[in-house]
């Protein structure tokens, strides 16, 4: 269960850290990241996820939308190919999926795993990435800024090789999060329509759909 939670944690970690990373800030200035993170009240963004695996001849493409409201409300919604929604707020996490034309709560235990994951996401929202013992971060400047995070813990290293977060230097937005699990398996998440501190209806974190 812990490894499963860690695996999903990585996915959320990548998404959150990527969305919160302020493009334009000095890339090696983690203090600036922390300060900027403290100013974020809400985030919303569309995402397209490409899953590459050896068994797939072309990537499996998923699409959805991500919402965050400080201090700890998250809605992580996949619209296709499998419709699912994770809601987390005030320590309560629920997972839903669509079945037979209606939305159904996942009762098989998935929400428990997500609760563990999203509990830690709240800490990341404070911008304390350097303090996370699970990864060692390095930065490469170029046309874009690429932050590479390498697992420092053995159990995570067994599941993935690295995370690459590409930040645009031209626009104030994240471009891509790339999670490399091994030489043939990786997940790439491209974000678009990122809105920082926009208005989000609080019911989005409480109700589905």
């Amino acid at each position: 269960m812990r490894r499963c939670a860690s695996a999903i944690k990585i996915l959320f970690f990548c998404a959150v850290i990527g969305l919160m990373w302020p493009a334009g800030a000095p890339a090696d200035d983690f203090d600036a990241l922390r300060r900027d993170a403290a100013r974020i009240r809400t985030i919303s963004a569309d995402f397209v996820q490409h899953k590459h695996m050896k068994i797939l001849s072309r990537p499996l493409v998923s699409e959805g939308r991500f919402y965050f409201a400080a201090p700890d409300s998250i809605r992580w919604q996949y619209n296709k190919p499998l419709k699912s929604i994770v809601l987390s707020s005030q320590g309560n996490t629920r997972r839903y999926f669509f079945s037979g034309g209606k939305i159904v709560e996942d009762t098989a235990g998935g929400a428990q795993v997500m609760g563990l994951v999203l509990g830690e996401v709240a800490a990341w929202m404070k911008g304390e990435f350097e303090a996370n013992p699970s990864f060692v971060a390095s930065i490469k400047e170029g046309a874009d800024t690429v932050v590479t995070m390498t697992p420092a813990e053995k159990n995570i290293a067994g599941m993935m090789e690295k995370i690459e977060i590409t930040l645009s230097r031209k626009e104030p937005s994240i471009k891509t999060v790339r999670i490399v699990e091994n030489s043939s398996t990786e997940t790439r998440i491209n974000f678009s329509n990122v809105v920082i501190n926009g208005q989000i209806n609080p019911s989005l974190f409480q109700e589905v759909p």
């Binding site: 499963c4 695996a7 999903i8 996915l11 996820q49 899953k51 695996m53 050896k54 068994i55 499996l60 998923s62 992580w76 996949y78 499998l82 699912s84 994770v86 999926f97 998935g110 699990e181 398996t185 997940t187």
Partner: peptide, 17 residues
């Protein structure tokens, strides 16, 4: 035969052949 099972979030939990 090869098979993979993934969560809705795309996290592969099983790959076997």
């Amino acid at each position: 035969v090869s098979c993979a099972l993934m969560s809705a979030e795309g996290m592969a939990v099983l790959e076997v052949s």
